[in-house]
């Protein structure tokens, strides 16, 4: 039986994992390579890392960090942030990423999804979508939620699937960073409208939140703070889910 994936997410600047509520008050949580190694050993099903400050200067160090992480883990690695053109995707795959996550570049230029999936295969193209409620509609947002686009969330989710995305990383900007649980209604809306895998992101604060995330039919559950702070170990989350009848890899 296919297992629900537990995916720690590393927000990275250069080679450090950082944490910031809605991208404010940024705090260093640890060394990215050490944390990646730890998560791989302690039962993470996949690892996600995002370059959250992809300036020209930081980028070189970040790519080196991707290379270093790919060398120390033997689970799949998804890398996002700082992608604007096809070459950026190729660079990350060459650095050792298994999947690349495209967010605002895809919103700006949807053709990029098709080009990337033709060149590298759908299985390694993840489209990250940030969603937010605005005037009673679920909209796609960019720039960490600061800019609301014209795109409707579900229309966009279907579009990225038809353009060749292999997976959607769905973050609700209404719940991200506040640890009150995933955005179940937004996630359910997305999973019921696409047939590719959806990773739920944004808002995990306790064990029950993981279970509620699973109920949205998301096949991957992504979390950052609860793992980085040491509040939960990956194994304890999986044991909890297993007791609830959720298939997990233990």
């Amino acid at each position: 039986m296919l297992k629900t994936r537990i995916i720690p997410c590393l927000d990275v600047i250069k080679n450090k994992v950082v944490k910031g509520v809605n991208f404010k008050n940024i705090k260093v949580m640890g060394n990215a390579v050490e944390m990646a190694r730890y998560y791989s050993l302690s039962g993470a099903d996949e690892l996600c890392m995002l370059d959250i400050n992809a300036s020209y200067q930081n980028r070189k160090t970040f790519i080196k960090t991707v290379e270093a992480i790919a060398k120390v883990i033997n689970i799949p690695l998804t890398v996002g942030g700082g992608i604007s053109v096809l070459d950026d995707i190729t660079d990350l795959l060459n650095a050792g990423a298994d999947k690349v996550s495209i967010n605002s570049a895809a919103v700006k230029n949807p053709k990029l999804i098709r080009q990337a999936s033709i060149k590298h295969g759908s299985q390694c193209i993840v489209v990250a979508i940030d969603g937010k409620r605005h005037e009673n509609k679920m909209k796609v947002v960019v720039k960490g939620g600061r800019e609301i686009t014209k795109k409707e969330l579900i229309v966009w989710a279907k579009e990225v699937q038809s353009l060749g995305a292999g997976e959607i990383l769905m973050t609700s900007m209404d719940t991200d960073g506040v640890q009150n649980g995933f955005d179940s209604s937004m996630l359910k809306k997305v999973t019921s409208n696409v047939s590719i895998p959806v990773i739920a992101s944004g808002g995990v604060g306790n064990l029950e939140h993981f279970y509620l995330g699973h109920l949205t039919k998301s096949t991957g559950l992504l979390a950052a703070s609860v793992f980085h702070s040491g509040k939960y170990k990956i194994k304890s989350v999986k044991k909890y889910l297993k007791n609830k009848g959720v298939p997990v890899r233990l």
């Binding site: 039986m1 296919l2 297992k3 629900t4 994936r5 099903d45 996949e46 759908s122 299985q123 292999g166 997976e167 047939s195 590719i196 895998p197 096949t219 991957g220 890899r249």
Partner: peptide
């Protein structure tokens, strides 16, 4: 199957 999420992505036994 139309009900399946495709690709089959993740850990399976």
């Amino acid at each position: 199957s139309k009900k399946l999420i495709i690709p089959h992505m993740g850990w399976n036994s």
